[in-house]
Amino acid sequence: MGVLSFVFSSSLGRKLVMAVTGISLIAFLLVHCAINATVFFNDGGETFNIAAEFMGHNWLIRTAEIGLFAGLLWHIIQGIWLTLDNQKRRKSKYGANPGSANSKWYSRSMGLLGSIILIFLVMHLKHFWVVSRFGMPHELGHLEYASGEHLENLYVEMVNVFQNPVAVIVYVLGCIGLGYHLLHGFSSAFQTLGINHKSYTPMIQSVGVAFSIIVPLIFAIIPVAFHLGLIK
């Protein structure tokens, strides 16, 4: 490890990990969101299943998936560790604390927002990732499309899961948590990487706000639309 041990030991190194893994997760969200949005084609999930098939069986994607999980775990573990560590830096608390006077609530609540996302994520992985990687349950099986392709029908799994209103509510809450987490995290990651310049920063911030609204919104509309029967 040697000189690179600073990513575990120094305050700046530990923040670097949060930023780099955070940006990787942002890239993942973009791909995930684009693939999910194919359900809006209303083609009985054909495009979605083809995309899911590719993502599930392409060796490059599967290898990247290992990196994704490693990055996610590192982001979570280092995030919890940093948060607990940071909370110890002020033993004596302020009597008056008008936090909103100098910063946004979501920038001060990344641990809480991250925990909401984590709760959602456990449910989400159980619903779809476990199912698609370790075998389809019960009657779903495979599906033959007009193209003659034989695919796993992950789309029907979505239809089934989102019949349950509790799942829909948890998914929507998870997306709201994700939106606020990104609202701070997106631009914060660039600041941590040392990118802060009067010409780039306003652009990064605008893209960050747009990303934090649009991506979680698309994710949140899907379960609602399935539940209401708007996607067929």
Binding site: S11, R89, G99, N102, S103, K104, S107, M110
Partner: peptide, 13 residues
């Protein structure tokens, strides 16, 4: 014993 930066911007404000 100072903490790490969370980029809330409270310091600059």
């Amino acid at each position: 014993g100072f903490g790490a930066c969370t980029n809330t911007g409270a310091c600059a404000a």
